[in-house]
Design a binder for these strands. Structure first.
Lengths: 232, 232
DNA sequence: TCCGATGTTTAGGTATACCTAATAAATAGG
DNA sequence: CCTATTTATTAGGTATACCTAAACATCGGA
């Protein structure tokens, strides 16, 4: 068998399956379908089935899998997934704060390196950064013990009531969208006022002083998460 | 085909073949034999032949290979090999200086990460370090343009004449040996006096004030390189 | 409830990078 | 100079992680 180049036991590919199951399953750890995984990972559905069977059949299974009923992470799988997410977010923070990367480049580099850094590397950059809890996108960084801090945030697109919010995170998968949004003031920490609306209505947003209509489909694509602010 | 996880075109495995050919070929770029490569890479000789054929047959060949006559790097191969060596040595320097790694741990981490960092990462850590020319082991760092600085150093084991030298580099492949040698003052920058000897004789070494006999086989294993010092 | 659309799995195949065993070429000793 | 040993190559096989195409479940609507 070919040499393992990872600092730990699993492969890069497996890491990515676990991460995808973690994020698609959401905080309630809903079963994830093959199709959803196939789309997320840009892999044929048949390949997903194959991999899931292998992950479930392992000595120490990383997922719980039942034919035609989707997958969930096992506790071992969740541990590894959270470790990889921790790596990703620490690396992003490090690239941004220590190596002065432009914000829109941190994701791609982190996506590659997250699989290959050692425990020591993880520990050292965390120490250098003062054990940060959120990354430059506003995402919480899982703890060393594999625990994801509770996020009291909600999707912008889920909010119908209107009110004042702080942007908690802006998803970092598409560099262009991210940059555009940032240029418009849509970035973690920014304050934002929503007008009440129905699910189908366009969204109106106040950022700082200026009020502009906001295209909901873009918010959908970018997965903007916000935290309600108590008026005081 | 499986997704490329490297920032550049080639694979981790290919990188390692190129690096091995570079170092085994030496500064004069002697043809390297399959056996030598097989040993260095801990891979069966048959696998070496296979890989060399592929590397030589590529659209843009990375090696010049003739059956039964060994390999040399092509200019493209040499460029990539030097790039990987640059990555390795920059990463080691970075781990040591910025992340406070213990010296004996930098090699393993660099060996893994060297294949996966981007041009940007390389450039950023080089800048952070002030574009260093030698790594913590005393090895020269190839330039961005893929040029290896001339090393006026020689193998400790090749020196028969005796004289005063500065240790230029101590090879970093075996952590234990490295640590032991360092504990005995054998580290880059240390001054060292050799007594004249024959190839088979034990070696006598002065480090600072103390003179001790030195086991040549250990020097052989560790590939200690030294630079002659003009007495003044 | 049955039936077709959708989603999922099985079957069979590709490329990479390894392996072992058998064969062939080069080199060195008598 | 010819054989014996060493070194290198070919042939055939494994595991991983993908693929396509065909078969098979599940689910929602008539």
């Amino acid at each position: 068998m070919p040499a393992r180049r990872q600092a730990n036991g699993s492969s890069e590919s497996i890491d990515n399956y676990l991460k995808a199951i973690l994020t698609l399953g959401g905080p309630q750890e809903i079963r994830v379908t093959s199709t959803a995984l196939a789309e997320r990972l840009s892999v044929a559905p048949a390949s997903i089935t194959n991999m899931l069977q292998k992950l479930a059949a392992a000595e120490r299974p990383l997922v719980e899998y039942e034919r035609h009923r989707g997958v969930r992470l096992s506790s071992a799988g969740k541990k590894r997934a959270l470790e990889v997410v921790r790596h990703h977010r620490l690396i992003e923070t490090f690239l941004y704060q220590v190596l002065d990367y432009p914000i829109e480049e941190v994701h791609e580099e982190a996506e590659r390196l997250e699989h290959f850094i050692s425990e020591r590397f993880e520990e050292r950059i965390a120490a250098k950064l003062g054990h940060p809890q959120i990354d430059p996108h506003g995402h919480f960084i899982p703890t060393m013990e594999g625990h994801m801090p509770q996020q009291a945030s909600i999707r912008l697109t889920e909010v119908l009531a209107g009110g004042t919010f702080v942007i908690h995170s802006v998803d970092d998968r598409d560099a262009r969208t991210l940059r555009e949004l940032e240029a418009n003031g849509i970035k973690p920490g920014a304050k934002l006022k929503l007008k009440p609306r129905t699910p189908t209505e366009a969204c109106s947003v106040n950022i700082g002083r200026s009020a502009k209509p906001f295209d909901l489909s873009r918010a959908m694509a970018a997965d903007i998460r916000i935290v309600p602010v108590e008026k005081n």
